[in-house]
């Protein structure tokens, strides 16, 4: 796949059906994490899987559609604002995957750092504009309070808050994505191979 156009995307029925499945997976990840009382969100596993299978464009769509749909229907309208973050996470994870950075465990950690970085860069300004810099996560907000108390600039406190919340989450999320990708059969991954052509046997 490498060497070809990284952004090439199939918009066939198979890719369209992939999107709701990924959005569902995001939801299930979040549900499991809270059922098992894990201190993480784990609500972007589906977006990352969508990005790895369908490429950056499908990844971006999965991310954005995820937040828009939940925001508009489950009453969690705060999620809407972070559609932008999800979109870019999906997009960049897709690029990393197409560039071969989901092929081995160490490489996937690098993808995790990119995803974490993207989350920080996009979410921090959103946090500042909408919530005055907080994330709503207890641990992150404690750090926020402490650095505000130490008279650090708002953006820096907010950045710390975001790092505490998002980086561990993205690392675990991409490790899980990596494990799940490994378990997926060839039959399935072949379906999203954008460069496949029919070969003639006669």
């Amino acid at each position: 796949m490498e060497g070809k156009n990284i952004f090439r995307t199939k918009f066939d029925v198979a890719s369209i059906v992939l999107i709701p499945a990924c959005i569902g997976i995001n939801y299930i990840g979040k549900l499991f994490a809270s059922a098992l009382k894990l201190p993480l969100w784990l609500d972007s596993i589906g977006t990352c899987l969508g990005a790895c299978l369908g490429g950056p464009i499908i990844g971006g769509i999965c991310g954005a559609a995820n937040n828009l749909i939940y925001g508009l229907t489950t009453g969690d309208s705060i999620t809407l604002i972070y559609a932008l973050t999800s979109l870019f996470i999906g997009f960049f994870v897709g690029i990393m995957a197409r560039a071969g950075f989901m092929k081995s465990f160490p490489k996937s950690l690098l993808t995790a750092l990119v995803a974490g970085g993207v989350a920080i860069v996009i979410s921090t300004p959103l946090n500042i504009v909408f919530w005055g810099g907080q994330t709503g996560n207890v641990w992150g907000d404690a750090v926020f309070a402490a650095s505000q108390a130490a008279s650090l600039p708002l953006w820096l406190s907010s950045l710390f808050d975001e790092i505490i919340v998002d980086v561990p989450d993205k690392i675990i999320t991409l490790i899980l994505t990596f494990i799940i990708l490994k378990a997926l059969p060839d039959k399935l991954t072949a379906l999203y191979d954008a460069d496949d052509e029919v070969e003639r046997l006669d």
Partner: peptide, 11 residues
């Protein structure tokens, strides 16, 4: 077969 599954096809 072959439009959805791709692969190699003859006849």
């Amino acid at each position: 077969v072959p439009q959805f599954y791709k692969g190699a096809y003859g006849g």
